[in-house]
Amino acid sequence: MLTVSQTAEFLQTVDHVLILTHVRPDGDTVGCAAALCAGLRALGKTAYLLPNPELTRNTAPYFRPYEAPEGFVPETVISTDIATVGLFPENAKPYAGRVDLAIDHHPSFEHFGRANIVRPEAAACGELIYDILAALGPITPEMALPLYVALSTDTGCFVYTNTTPRTHQVAAALMALDIDYRTVNKVFFRTKSRKQMQLEGAMLSAAEFYDQDRVAVLPVPLSLMARIQADESDAEDLSSLGGQIEGVDCAITMRELRPDVWKMSLRTGDRVSATLACQLLGGGGHAAAAGCTVEAPFEEAKRRILDAVAQVTPDCRL
């Protein structure tokens, strides 16, 4: 396992770098990749991000300036905020066996890189990227803005329980570089499309409650997406909705990706370990935010995730 200084030394020796982001990319993986790419370019390196077909309207502007041209052949491959090769997009899978450096912050990180650095206590992978870039030289506004996206989105604009004093310290240092953090806050946290609001209303109407109303299941079937004519951008961050319901300390968002293929996103309090529950079904993540994928009809998929939650929660009564 590399230290920050060892990682910085490694990055100084490489060139022609391709940076990978995970499926259904969020602000952390995009922000980390963009900031790292900007940092490598500041060192005079050739660096790009592997195109990700699932970018949303919110994340795309931070990604596109660094997107690799067709035919780019890397000498070095780096992943950011990816816990397992199972989260590689289809076009990243050819690189699964040749990741030279994997940078992550998930407790379930699988150490798939030839070299690895992980900080499970970090609220966002962006905190770790910040320290690595700071060890390479001054943090510039070009690095700071995507890093702010990374930190703010993985902490719900600094309100999730994973937020620490260190998170605020890094955010303050980034804000001091005169970046447009106000637009980030507005776009990601105070603006929703009408279709997203329709999705949220339908999810709440269809929500099912278990374990003395402490566990909520909110379904997002393909039929709902089609009825509202919603796309990936409209479905961004739906997993945060259930946790806002009073009395719920385990919110399970069931998003149907393909017929009978369900992406489970768990958001939990201290009573329920999201990581342990999802690991039982081949997934992972953090103690309070984790995910997994289940291939089964809705009722069976729901039963599997509820059983997993009950298995890791001694006082759970379904």
Rank of each mutant, 00 (worst) to 15 (best):
M1Q: 12
F10N: 00
L11A: 10
L18N: 00
L18K: 00
L20Q: 07
V23Q: 12
P25C: 05
D26T: 01
G27E: 01
T29W: 01
T29Q: 00
V30F: 10
L36N: 09
C37E: 07
C37R: 10
G39I: 08
R41M: 13
L43G: 07
T46N: 05
T46C: 12
A47M: 04
L49P: 05
L49F: 09
E54T: 04
T59W: 07
A60K: 13
Y62W: 13
F63P: 04
F63E: 10
R64L: 15
R64G: 00
P65A: 07
P65T: 13
P65Q: 10
P65H: 08
E67K: 11
E70M: 09
E70N: 13
F72L: 03
F72G: 03
T76G: 06
S79G: 06
T80Q: 08
V85R: 03
F88Y: 14
F88E: 05
P89H: 12
N91A: 14
P94T: 11
A96V: 06
V99C: 01
V99G: 01
D100F: 08
L101P: 02
A102S: 12
H106S: 11
S108A: 03
A115P: 04
P120A: 12
A122L: 11
A123Y: 01
A124W: 01
G126Y: 11
E127D: 10
I129A: 03
I129H: 02
A135L: 05
P138E: 15
P141V: 06
L145C: 08
P146R: 01
Y148I: 12
D154Q: 08
C157R: 14
C157A: 15
P165G: 10
H168E: 02
H168Y: 13
V170P: 04
A173E: 07
L174P: 05
A176I: 03
L177I: 06
K186S: 14
R194F: 15
K195E: 13
M197T: 09
E200F: 08
E200T: 06
M203C: 03
L204G: 03
L204A: 00
S205Y: 06
S205D: 14
A206P: 02
E208S: 13
E208I: 10
F209N: 13
D213T: 08
R214Q: 14
V217H: 12
L218T: 05
L224W: 08
M225K: 15
I228E: 01
A230Y: 00
E232M: 11
D234C: 06
S239D: 13
L241A: 09
L241C: 11
G242N: 08
I245A: 08
I245V: 15
D249R: 14
M254K: 12
R255E: 09
R255V: 10
E256C: 02
E256H: 04
L257V: 14
L257N: 10
D260E: 14
D260R: 14
W262Q: 11
K263H: 08
M264R: 13
S265L: 08
T268M: 03
A274Q: 11
A277P: 12
C278R: 12
Q279N: 04
L280P: 03
L281Q: 13
G283S: 13
A287P: 05
A289F: 06
T293E: 00
A296V: 07
P297A: 15
A301Y: 04
K302E: 09
R304N: 11
D307H: 12
V309P: 09
V309D: 07
